[in-house]
């Protein structure tokens, strides 16, 4: 009986791992200002163009408001403003990356979306110890791709890290 249960548990664990395996090491990259950022693909549910945003009172400036995502009302965050980068008018390349963390959907407004990249763990480095700028608080690591470096963001921190 116990043996069976253990086996079942092990199977379940394996399954979970497998599922994550398929998406592990994959990152969606996007542009803010001149820098390229990446976010773990498992958080991303879709990418949409810029929408009409309804402002919500009493929010920090980087929370632009809410949008209607096929009948679901989700908040959107301007990542530029989150990073303390100067605001810039939205254009037809501006995208909203919808991410899902713990069943909470949030749209991230980014300048433009690039691609999905595979960055093996071996190519990841811890965040630099000294780095100025607001966004350093949200960095999970640095990913080497060829001779370029992408800044990998910690989605959780991006959403929930308190303002300094």
């Amino acid at each position: 009986m116990t043996a069976l249960k253990e086996r079942l548990d092990a199977d379940l664990l394996e399954e979970e791992e497998e599922e994550e395996d398929t998406q592990e090491d994959e990152y969606l990259t996007f542009l803010i200002g001149q820098e390229e950022y990446g976010i773990e693909i498992r958080y991303v549910t879709e990418i949409i163009g810029i929408q009409n945003i309804t402002e919500v009172p009493d929010m920090p400036p980087f929370i632009k408001g809410v949008i209607n995502l096929r009948g679901k009302v989700i908040p959107v965050m301007d990542v530029r403003l989150r990073f303390g980068v100067e605001a810039r008018p939205y254009d037809d390349r501006t995208c909203i990356v919808v991410i899902n963390i713990g069943d909470t959907l949030v749209g991230l407004i980014v300048d433009r979306v690039f691609e999905v990249l595979d960055i093996p763990k071996t190519d990841l480095e811890p965040p630099p110890r000294v780095r100025k700028g607001e966004e350093s608080r949200f960095i999970q690591g640095m990913g080497k791709v060829g001779d370029k470096v992408k800044i990998i963001l910690n989605a959780e921190k991006l959403l929930y890290e308190q303002n300094a």
Binding site: V56, D58, M59, V66, V73, P75
Partner: peptide, 27 residues
């Protein structure tokens, strides 16, 4: 009536939101 996102928490003076005929969200 739809709830505002949990992410935003309780918003002062707003009890929820609704999607209007043109697809926009109204508080």
């Amino acid at each position: 009536i739809k709830g505002l996102s949990r992410y935003l928490g309780q918003v002062r003076g707003v009890s929820g939101c609704a999607i209007l005929g043109d697809g926009d969200v109204s508080l």
